[in-house]
Amino acid sequence: MTDQTRPRVYGSGHGDIDACATLPDHEYVELDGGPLDGQLLDVTGLTADERTAGAYLITTHSAYGPSGRASYGPTFSRPTGPWVWEGDVP
């Protein structure tokens, strides 16, 4: 059973036992707003440029259905996180 007080890590399944487990020596940003609100995204392997650009994350809850993506990225005022929802993309 998962700990309901800890955010879920993006990419883990709803039924995963370790859905809320973060890995040591990994860096995470919280996703703010939109369909993935409150989840954590592992940004450990991203370059500085990739972190600046943000990411299109697959979600079944986008305006475009199961094949859609949600755009998340850093803000100028808080470049290290959380990443905010910028909208849905096909």
Rank of each mutant, 00 (worst) to 15 (best):
D16P: 02
L46F: 13
A48G: 11
T52F: 04
V89I: 05
C20S: 07
P79R: 07
P24T: 06
V29L: 14
T47W: 08
H26Q: 06
C20N: 08
I58H: 15
Y10C: 04
R6G: 04
G38C: 08
Q4E: 10
G68A: 14
D25I: 12
T59H: 15
G68R: 09
S77T: 15
T22R: 10
V29I: 14
D88I: 05
P82E: 15
E27Y: 02
L36A: 04
D49F: 05
G81V: 01
P66K: 15
G81T: 00
F76M: 08
T44Q: 09
L46K: 03
E50I: 09
H14Y: 07
H61V: 11
D42G: 12
A63Y: 00
G13N: 04
P74W: 01
D32N: 13
L57Q: 04
D18Q: 02
H14N: 11
T59E: 13
D3Y: 05
A55L: 04
D32Y: 11
D25M: 15
F76A: 15
D37S: 09
Y28Q: 06
T59R: 14
E27F: 02
E27M: 04
Y10L: 11
C20K: 05
A21F: 12
T5E: 07
T2I: 02
L41E: 02
G68P: 06
D88M: 03
F76C: 08
I17M: 00
D16H: 12
V89K: 01
P35L: 13
L36D: 03
